[in-house]
Design a protein around this nucleic acid. Structure first.
Length: 431
RNA sequence: GUGGCCUUAGCUCAAUGGUAGAGCACUGGAUUGUGGCUCCAGCGGUUGCGGGUUCGACCCCCGUAGGCCACCCCA
């Protein structure tokens, strides 16, 4: 048994899984760049106030899932690991006076987030998110663009047919009245409410809307819908978002019961699920508009919208739909030889190949040639270069491990020979 | 945070309360400069951990840790 292991809810990304993550990170970085989002990196931890004010003090994320770090006596400050990216990015926007830049300021970040949750498949205490934020544009066109970017990420990552769930949750002008009406509605049914929901009714009536309890689902069918209670400005904004999505040909499903778990959202809210999956740990991403957040964190009143997308969840979805994981990169050539004293020669040849940009490995051990070739074949190396007596004439045996053929090649011609083989090989396999 | 199921070699899994095993993987040999197959051998375990019951515990009981499932909630 190992003496130490990865902390609960965390895991090591072994090479195969790490490669899959890198692929997603590249898709995200390239996509964000194409849309004009600039990369940013904020600290993994912030003052707790950033999250308490930014995310909301009464949210589950802050109340029970925040990774708080013990205060240190020298500064007395309380820190917490970031549970989501938006609050930190907005904090940076305010701190660095980004309101003086042309608006909107479009930023992207990919990295680990931390929530002290009870782990389950697809739910970790350390998980990775790709995130974009557009700060300073009141929309609604930017809302549609952000959602369209999200759908494009899934498409390029290979997720089949993700489903966008869309709603508008109003703003300070219309939401309070709606919440009051909703609470009134539930109080009229108080004897039918499960105990858990009665508790939440006083603290966060909106949350009852997306309950999965059978009684609540039935009750919610007749509950007042926010989309019927939006003020004129919010209704007009929401109509604009839908019109732009329609114009872009982005499909979505209206879900008047969709509410987000973070306080800062206003108006547009959306979540993405794999099609037909209502499972609990399956949300692929979500986001929305946060027109009050910049001000909450000490900036001038500034609108914003963004979304975060779970890399772990995407990998899970790809696996569930049967998409094969990324394959291990193979060696273009493995340099082998029977002479125990020949490691320097083998290493020199491998170095020459690497300098030319080829993926190569040299046998540095004392194994017999048969074992060396066995390893090379198992690694799916394309070629083995057998270094031996021929080297006196500046030549090595170039053995094609897939075709089983081999020929003498001058060391000076190796790079050209391997590059040519690689090119035609890729042609042949339709790449 | 609540309830439930699970935990044996690196991986996937066996083993009436009575000597802990197999396949895969890894290393070596058969094969002194020619591979994936085959054959042989080796390496690898305080049966998650800590207690208890018993002449004797992988097996039964309690606790604990971790994983998973459903909640809660979200990515």
């Amino acid at each position: 048994m190992p003496t130490f292991r990865a902390p609960r809810g965390t895991r090591d990304l072994l090479p195969l899984e790490r490669a899959a993550f890198i692929r997603l990170e590249r898709i995200g970085a390239e996509l964000a760049n194409r849309y004009g989002y600039r990369p940013i990196e904020t600290p993994l931890f912030e003052q707790v106030g950033v999250f308490e004010r930014g995310v909301g003090a009464v949210t589950d994320i802050v109340e029970k899932e925040l990774f708080r770090l013990a205060p240190r006596t020298e500064d007395g400050e309380t820190w917490a690991l970031r549970p989501e990216p938006t609050a930190g990015i907005v904090r940076a926007y305010v701190q660095h006076g980004m309101q003086t830049l042309p608006q909107p300021v479009k930023l992207t970040m990919t990295g680990p987030m931390f929530r002290y949750d009870r782990p389950q498949a697809g739910r970790y205490r350390e998980f990775w998110q790709f995130d974009i934020e557009a700060i300073g544009d009141p929309g609604p066109a930017i809302d549609a663009e952000v959602i369209e970017l999200a759908t494009r990420f899934y498409r390029e990552a290979g997720v089949v047919d993700p489903e966008i769930n869309l709603n508008s949750i109003g703003d300070a002008a219309c939401r309070p009245a709606y919440i009051a009406e909703l609470a009134e509605f539930y109080r009229g049914q108080i004897d039918r409410l499960p105990a858990l929901e009665r508790d939440r009714l006083e603290r966060s009536p909106l949350r009852l809307l997306d309950s999965k309890d059978a009684v609540m689902v039935e009750l919610n069918a007749t509950a007042p819908a926010i989309t019927d209670r939006l003020c004129d400005a919010c209704a007009e904004h929401f109509a604009g978002v839908r019109a732009h999505l329609d114009a872009l040909g982005v499909g979505y499903r209206l879900d008047p019961h969709l509410v987000r778990g973070l306080d800062y959202y206003t108006r547009t809210a959306f979540e993405i699920y794999p099609r037909g999956v209502a499972g609990q740990q399956s949300a692929l991403g979500g986001g929305g508009r946060y027109d009050g957040l910049v001000e909450l964190l000490g900036g001038k009143p500034t609108p914003g919208i963004g979304f975060g997308l779970g890399l772990d969840r995407i990998l899970l979805a790809l696996e569930a739909q049967g998409t094969p994981p990324v394959s291990e990169p193979g060696y273009a050539a493995v340099v082998v030889g029977a002479d125990p004293a020949g490691t320097a020669d083998r290493l020199k040849i491998a170095t020459m190949l690497r300098a030319a940009g080829l993926v190569a490995r040299a046998e540095l051990g004392q194994r017999k040639l048969g074992k060396q070739l066995e390893s090379a074949a198992k690694e799916r190396a394309h070629f083995a270069l057998i270094v031996g007596d021929e080297l006196r004439d500046g030549q090595v045996q170039l053995k094609d491990l897939e075709a089983g053929t081999q020929k003498l090649v001058a060391v000076d011609d190796l790079v050209r020979e391997l590059e040519r083989a690689q090119a035609s090989h890729h042609h042949g396999s339709g790449r």
